[in-house]
Design a protein around this nucleic acid. Structure first.
Lengths: 225, 225
DNA sequence: TCTTAAAGTTTGCCGAACCTAACTATTTAA
DNA sequence: TTAAATAGTTAGGTTCGGCAAACTTTAAGA
């Protein structure tokens, strides 16, 4: 049985490493709220156990074994979020912290019961894909909103879940999974993106737009490319 | 924040102390699966923190403060059991171990949400009363089945939840909360009790009978006492 | 190139919660 | 009443996960 702490380190590296970029001691320390020597020590341990590879002074990279643990945690996390949301009606900006704790302690048996109870779902309340029991993580749908060109219309399919403040901001603007949005205007020099949502006009910052993924609606009656 | 370990010690003392009898090092050690020196050490710590009083060589007793923590845990435990049973349909012989872990990590906010979701229930799936948020523990209903006289009829209202084997034994005999039972015969010298359940005759050992509480049905047309 | 700032590591320490071994108090029974 | 058995405690050690202080490596700029 892996300790809570070890699981958290692996998870943090997974989140920071993005598209397989090396992850540095300082970033792990900042993200976990511990000091660098603690990270150095744990990294050495995790490397010895084969969860990640470590080039001293050059950062770490998860091994297959480490990846698998991180993806399993992600499965747990997302199923727990969906479960809390569906049963207790806990809003999407409040489920993350509870799931953060529960993902480490809920038994596999319970997770599979939850999975079946929820009807073997594909997405969590933020629209994130739910990894399979086999460790397979389906690709995200859609594209980041900040990549969408003027005039295009799409449906919100996924939003970043780490910052509750951001989720409340979305809620305040009536943006949710499934909302239809049209990009009316993209201000230059990193300026806001002007959206049309439910006949309302709405300005949204670039940082926020990057955290929203939309499925572009194919224009009918016009061929693209 | 109390550690998992501290909460478990307090809970164990609570369970062992019954009607305010002193609890001994050996019993705590056996019940928790640790060695006696670990208990001595922790007891000293818990006494210093005011959770229990300790007379060396003479056992411990929870203080008001300790009692309160134990009862809060009991509330959490029972609400979690009921929640898992109601939502996921987990049978009564399997909910205990999950609840055992979850009671330590689920936030108060989540517990109160669960409480409301369940309709502010009074009993868990084993018929145990659920303590209030204020630390008030309602009395158990009914009387132990081994105290019921021959000829009397009652309804099962509560069963002990610690031994899954026992719960499966009850399930196998179609005994559940709400079952109507009549004591047909009580064998002498600690022999079995013969019950009538759903027109079936059924022999049940004294140890089992002690773990079942029934609400005696007042005989109509006859005055008692 | 050389110096300095930043990042990373090593060393040695701490507290929590466990352990074994050795010692002490209490209870029991000869 | 006293010896042995049982229960409890103390002393000292381990592992885990964290820390500060001191040192090393790498990167950046003069």
């Amino acid at each position: 049985m892996l300790s809570r702490s070890i699981e958290d380190y692996i998870k943090t590296v997974y989140e920071l490493q993005g598209e397989n970029q090396r992850v540095f001691t300082k970033d792990i320390a900042r993200s976990m709220g511990v000091k660098m020597p603690s990270v150095s020590g744990m990294v050495k341990h995790l490397a010895a156990e084969g969860y990640l590879s470590h080039k001293p002074y050059k950062g770490v990279l998860l091994t297959k074994r480490g990846q698998r643990i991180a993806v399993d945690l992600l499965r747990r996390h997302r199923l727990i979020e969906l479960f809390l949301n569906k049963t207790l009606g806990i809003p999407w900006d409040e489920i993350h912290e509870d799931a953060e704790v529960l993902e480490h302690v809920i038994s596999n048996k319970l997770i599979e019961r939850i999975f079946n109870f929820l009807g073997r779902p594909k997405f969590d309340p933020h629209g994130h894909t739910i990894p399979g029991k086999d460790g397979n993580l389906p690709l995200s749908r859609g594209v980041p909103l900040d990549k969408v060109s003027e005039g295009e219309t799409g449906r919100v399919v996924e939003v970043s879940d780490h910052d509750p403040e951001f989720l409340r901001y979305l809620t305040g603007m009536k943006l949710k999974i499934g909302s239809e949005v049209q990009v009316k205007e993209r201000a230059p020099f990193g300026g806001p993106i002007i959206l049309k949502v439910e006949r309302q006009s709405l300005a949204i910052g670039l940082d926020a737009a990057r955290r929203i993924r939309v499925d572009i609606k194919k224009k009918v009656g016009k061929r693209s490319n």
